[in-house]
Structure formats: structure tokens, C-alpha cells
């Protein structure tokens, strides 16, 4: 909300005056590389993957070293257990394990003599009812946009991540929220951005993932950082649910998807 207000005020002032940006050189320190782990397991019947990379210094190119030769296992509290295959450098995939809501999944990674562990419980599936196309009930502009609609369950404590794909391409607009302010009601929301341009015939896909508290905490802190260092207080590395000193997160999440063609 705060960023939103500031954004509006600055946008208006920018039109009135001239607010200017320029690229500058900042002398930044170098860092000790850290392992970055991303793993997602869902209720869909498919192969899941865990990727392991490393961080680099700010001044380097965005080529993140991929970590090969790690031993990656995923197990659950109902007796499933699988050691993942390294499909390509740094990418480890499952072949048999199933994601079932309510179960707790455990990730174990060994890289050399270092061990990283994480656990995540897959929340109950919340079904995405429909997508609709209408003018936003609030926000900038009067153009029609895609809204996603679902009934938020009456039980408190659900956290969501909503992703938007246009013509199969994931847009950089993931929304993370919980039911703290909107428990048990019918939700109808749009992605809030001036950057989305829906065109006639676009295939629009939205996926609603129900995530657990640890993952929500991580993704929420990550989304606060996305505002830029000066926007959301003092930035800090998001609190990961992986222990052992790695960046990233491991999420067992239930997912519901809908698709619509923009008329």
C-alpha cells in the first residue's frame, strides 16, 4: 500500500516536474559464494525438479555456476523416498514421488561435506474457480483486465502465490498474499501492473498455489525486496526455510490452474 501511494505521488510529480534516472557506477564489495537451492513439489502428476546454483558478485555477468554431483533426496512422512537424478548440470529431477496435500516433504542435499535440509507441508488444495475479464474495481486505468476468482476457505491460515502466464510465458508478476485481511470470502483480483498488455487472442493462464507458512515468509520477504532497496525499509536476505546456510526455498504446494483466451 505504502509503495503504491508513493508510486502514485511520484508518478504525478514526475509528470509535473522532471524526475530523472541515470545509470551510475557503485563500488560494491565482493562476496563469498553461496549455494542457491530451489525445489518445488506439487499435487500434479509430473516430475519435479530441484536446482542448485551459486551466487556471484554483483559486477559479474548473470552466469550462475551450476552445481553438479550433489546427492539430493526427497522423502515424505508416508514412507515415500527418492534420490533424484541429475538430468542436466545443477538440475535434479524426480521420477516416482507423488505430491499429496497434507503430507510433509523433506529435502536433503549433500554437496561435498556440506548438508542442507528443508521441510515443507503441502496445504489443502484451494480451487481456482474461474478467470473473468472486466475493468478493475480499483487501481489505475479503465482498460479491461484478467481477474482470477476463487472462494477463500473459512479456515484461517492459507497463503497463496499466484502466477500469470501469457501465451505460455511466465510474467514477472508473481503475487504473494495470505488470508489475513480477506478470510473466507469470494476473492476476485487482477494483476496490478501497467506493464501488462493483453492483446486480442492472447492465451492467459493463471495458477493459484497454496503454500505453507515458511514458504510464504520467504516469498513475501522476496517480494518486498523487489520494490528496490529504498522502498521497503532496509533490505535483507529473505528468511529461507532451508537450513545449513543456503539461499532459496523448498516448497510443497497444491496448485490449481485455469486458462482463458483474451477476447
Amino acid at each position: 500500500m505504502k509503495t503504491f501511494i508513493k508510486f502514485i505521488a511520484l508518478a504525478i510529480l514526475a509528470h509535473l516536474l522532471y524526475s530523472c534516472t541515470k545509470v551510475i557506477d557503485v563500488d560494491l564489495n565482493s562476496t563469498n559464494p553461496k549455494y542457491v537451492i530451489e525445489g518445488i513439489i506439487t499435487n500434479e502428476a509430473k516430475s519435479f525438479s530441484v536446482t542448485i546454483k551459486q551466487s556471484v558478485n554483483f559486477s559479474e555477468t548473470n552466469n550462475y555456476p551450476k552445481i553438479s554431483g550433489a546427492i539430493v533426496t526427497i522423502s515424505d512422512n508416508a514412507g515415500q523416498n527418492e534420490t533424484l537424478m541429475e538430468k542436466s548440470a545443477g538440475q535434479y529431477v524426480t521420477s516416482s514421488i507423488l505430491g499429496i496435500p497434507g503430507r510433509t516433504y523433506q529435502l536433503n542435499i549433500k554437496i561435498g561435506d556440506k548438508t542442507f535440509t528443508a521441510s515443507s507441508t503441502m496445504p489443502t488444495l484451494v480451487v481456482l474457480d474461474s478467470l473473468s475479464i472486466k475493468k478493475p474495481s480499483f487501481g489505475i486505468g479503465s482498460k479491461k483486465v484478467v481477474h482470477y476468482n476463487f472462494n477463500e476457505p473459512a479456515i484461517k491460515g492459507n497463503n497463496y502465490k499466484v502466477d500469470l502466464y501469457i501465451n505460455g510465458k511466465l510474467e514477472d508478476l508473481a503475487t504473494v498474499f495470505n488470508d489475513r485481511l480477506a478470510n473466507g470470502i469470494k476473492i476476485s483480483s487482477a494483476f496490478f501492473s501497467q506493464d501488462i498488455e493483453y492483446k486480442l487472442g492472447d492465451s492467459v493462464r493463471v495458477s493459484l498455489s497454496n503454500i505453507d507458512n515458511g514458504v510464504f515468509q520467504y516469498l513475501f520477504e522476496l517480494s518486498q525486496l523487489a520494490d528496490g532497496p529504498n522502498q521497503a525499509g532496509t533490505p535483507a536476505n529473505p528468511t529461507s526455510n532451508i537450513s545449513g546456510g543456503a539461499f532459496g526455498y523448498f516448497s510443497a504446494q497444491s496448485i490449481s490452474t485455469k486458462e482463458i483466451v483474451f477476447p
Binding site: L28, N29, V36, S55, N57, N62, F247
Partner: peptide, 15 residues
Amino acid sequence: FPSGKYEIDGKTTYY
């Protein structure tokens, strides 16, 4: 300020 960077969900994230 960030000193390093990495990638999460395909997006550059600062360290």
C-alpha cells in the same frame, strides 16, 4: 546495497 546476486524463479535476486 547488495554485494552479490543469484537467481530465484528465473529472476535476479540480490545478495
